[in-house]
């Protein structure tokens, strides 16, 4: 009954494999396609950043994978959602619930509202071992202390009895990370885990996530809007715009030579800590309303490469020609009619 659900998967099975994920919200004003045909693969030990602005569909993607969108006005469909080889789309809600917190876990942005204010940290951490592993109260408490130590909470034997409000924001986020890694999941999804934190504390939490995924061999899907955060910890980056992935590449290649005009424009528009303080190359316009997407490529009204074909025909997410992809051990993909031109601009 209390057998661990996550038996060892063959090491070549990806921790997460998503194929053709679509999420639609039904509102009074009609259907809103929030996620459109997303494919994702995250290997064990890999940290993939899913980068996008508000409304791009990145958080909705995360919630769909976790099975947290079971609501009457939300329609989720996918050809496949595999977590460590287990197919989630065919699973009953109860089975999926057992996987959550065990094989796959989620770290939220706001640690204070994600923790129960009337239970001690030890009780909340220990509950995981008691419910999922059938551990005794004493054993669960001992594991909770170990976990607090693992995520760098000083004096864990004493702090395990404290309540959430007795911890600082950074410490609370560490506790959430501890809960997320408690049962050594195959997949950890972190949804803007450092956005509410100060810069100095953000650096600590990013370092912690990076260390844990190496030590525990977890796959991490990091949802972020921050190019800097992605550059600091990601192995690979998938960029979302208007519900679709528009580009995916190893982090070094993406920042050195973006293959999609949106990525290129974003990189050009952010202010830097060094370099000249000249005018920022601002992107014209705003992200599109998901209910009123332009025809063809969703980025075309803001794109400086856009031509007639971009306004008529949606570009598919295709491998970048090897000659242009650069020295990458993995293939890169981009959804743009003018990828070659964009890549040449980076070189030139």
């Amino acid at each position: 009954m209390n057998e661990p659900v996550n038996g060892p998967a063959p090491s070549d099975t990806p921790a997460l494999r998503v194929r053709d994920l679509n999420v639609r919200f039904t509102t009074e004003r009609g259907e809103i396609p929030a996620v459109r045909g997303v494919d994702l693969t995250v290997r064990r030990g890999q940290l993939l950043a899913l980068l996008g602005e508000s409304g791009s569909g990145k958080s909705v993607t995360a919630r769909a994978v976790m099975g947290l969108l079971d609501q009457p006005n939300v329609h989720v469909s996918a050809a496949a959602i595999d977590v460590a080889g287990r197919e989630l789309t065919a699973m009953r809600a109860a089975e999926r619930r057992r996987l959550r917190g065990d094989a796959m876990t989620l770290v939220f942005q706001d640690a204070l509202s994600a923790l129960n204010p009337v239970l001690s940290i030890g009780d909340q951490l220990g509950e995981l071992f008691r419910v999922h592993r059938g551990a005794s109260r004493r054993a669960a408490r001992a594991r909770a202390v170990e976990l607090l130590d693992l995520v760098g909470i000083p004096a864990p034997e004493r702090r395990v009895r404290d309540y959430p409000h007795q911890f600082s924001g950074g410490m609370r986020q560490r506790i959430l990370v501890a809960m997320a890694v408690a049962l050594e999941p195959e997949l950890l999804i972190a949804d803007e885990p450092t956005t509410a934190l100060d810069v100095t504390v953000q650096a600590q939490i990013l370092r912690l996530l990076d260390r844990l995924r190496r030590e525990l061999g977890m796959a991490v899907l990091l949802i972020t809007h921050d190019l800097g955060v992605a550059a600091e910890v990601a192995d690979d980056v998938a960029v979302m715009y208007a519900g679709r992935i528009v580009e995916e590449a190893p982090v070094g290649r993406l920042f050195a030579a973006p293959a999609h005009p949106y990525t290129q424009a974003l990189l050009g528009s952010i202010p830097r800590l060094d370099g000249p303080r000249e005018a920022l190359a601002a992107i014209e316009g705003s992200p599109p309303n998901p209910a009123r997407l332009p025809p063809g490529c969703s980025f075309n009204p803001r794109c400086r490469y856009a031509t007639d074909i971009c306004r008529a025909e949606r570009p598919l997410l295709l491998p970048v020609p090897a000659a242009l992809a650069g020295p990458a051990e993995r293939t890169r993909t981009a959804a743009c009619h003018h990828t070659e031109e964009v890549l040449r601009a980076a070189v030139g």
Partner: peptide, 11 residues
């Protein structure tokens, strides 16, 4: 503001 819009306002 969204990151693609910040630069417009900074400018």
């Amino acid at each position: 503001l969204d990151m693609s819009v910040q630069a417009q306002v900074v400018n």
